[in-house]
């Protein structure tokens, strides 16, 4: 069926809307994908190594083996996402060729291009991109991202950067909404973002696409915190399969995202989850992935 690119972009933003209120989990095997689906994940991110292991291993980190991604696609009925390196047009085209449901152009992998991101307007499949602030989010949307997530600091189990990025984006949106029409031209200049997207954000009081939290979420309380700060859903990477009881923790995080305002329920959900991932504090790490791609 022939579809115009702008129509496909609309459908891609719509798919992100269907993921709202859900948890997207990192998985490395079909078995883990099934565990994630059974625990209530609304999508899975297929990758060879979870961020904590990428961080520990060091070296260049690349797109996963398409064979492994296909096996995960066959294992579950929920949407399957996979990561390409920032600016790696060919990796993105390969993921599109295997009909991935969403490409994450991700700072977790080693960037392939230190200046340009992928021109996502030229693709039929949807992209999600990370952002630390509103300008970055709007630049990614201008390039064709159908969904935004905070960068956080992947693989650390430390939520502080995801919180910082979410607060920054939400606060900048509130500031923008209070501006007069003529002030928005200057705001666009300051944000280094296209005027039409700045205007749309100011008028609607929200990002033009769905906005998830990602990076360092390890507990049901972390997930609820991100929802309280305005996230529309949560990515959990290393937090689940680096913990003692992945099934239980995954299911608890799913329920915490749905009922982030019910603190009695959150108390119950936080009980007996086994060991959380050990984690690293942000000042103990040498590589800040969030600084990749601006």
């Amino acid at each position: 069926m022939f579809k115009k690119m702008n129509e496909q972009y609309g459908l891609n933003k719509n798919l992100a809307q269907m993921l709202k209120g859900g948890v997207i989990m990192d998985v490395t095997t079909p078995q883990q994908a099934k565990v994630a689906e059974a625990a209530g994940a609304c999508a899975v991110m297929a990758l060879e190594r979870i961020p904590a292991d990428i961080r520990a291993a060091g070296g260049v980190s690349r797109m996963s083996d398409p064979k492994m991604i296909r096996e995960i696609q066959r294992a579950v009925t929920i949407p399957v996402m996979a990561k390409c390196r920032i600016g790696h047009i060919a990796e993105a085209r390969i993921l599109e060729a295997i009909e991935i449901d969403f490409i994450d152009e991700s700072e977790v992998l080693s960037p392939a291009d230190d200046i340009y991101h992928v021109d996502k307007t030229q693709f039929s499949v949807p992209f999600v991109c990370g952002a630390k602030d509103l300008g970055e989010a709007l630049r990614r949307i201008a390039e064709g991202a159908a969904m935004i997530r905070t960068k956080g600091e992947p693989g650390t189990g430390d939520v502080v950067q995801a919180v910082r990025h979410m607060r920054q984006i939400m606060s900048e949106i509130r500031t923008l909404s209070a501006k007069s029409a003529d002030e928005l031209f200057e705001a666009a200049k300051q944000l280094a973002a296209p005027y039409d997207l700045v205007k749309q954000t100011a008028e609607s009081g929200r990002l033009p696409v769905v906005n998830f939290a990602a990076g360092g979420v390890a507990t049901p309380a972390d997930a609820a915190l991100m929802m309280l700060l305005g996230a529309e859903g949560v990515f959990v990477g290393s937090g689940i399969f680096k913990s003692g009881e992945p099934e239980k923790r995954a299911a608890a995080i799913v329920k915490a995202v749905t009922n982030f305002n019910d603190f009695k329920l959150l108390a119950t959900l936080s009980e007996d989850l086994g060991e959380a991932m050990v984690g690293i504090n942000e000042d103990e790490i040498s590589l800040l992935m969030a600084e990749r791609g601006k």
Binding site: E37, G40, A41, I78, A251
Partner: peptide, 8 residues
């Protein structure tokens, strides 16, 4: 949304 998530 995802029917598997809602059912669970």
């Amino acid at each position: 949304g995802e029917s598997t998530v809602m059912a669970k």
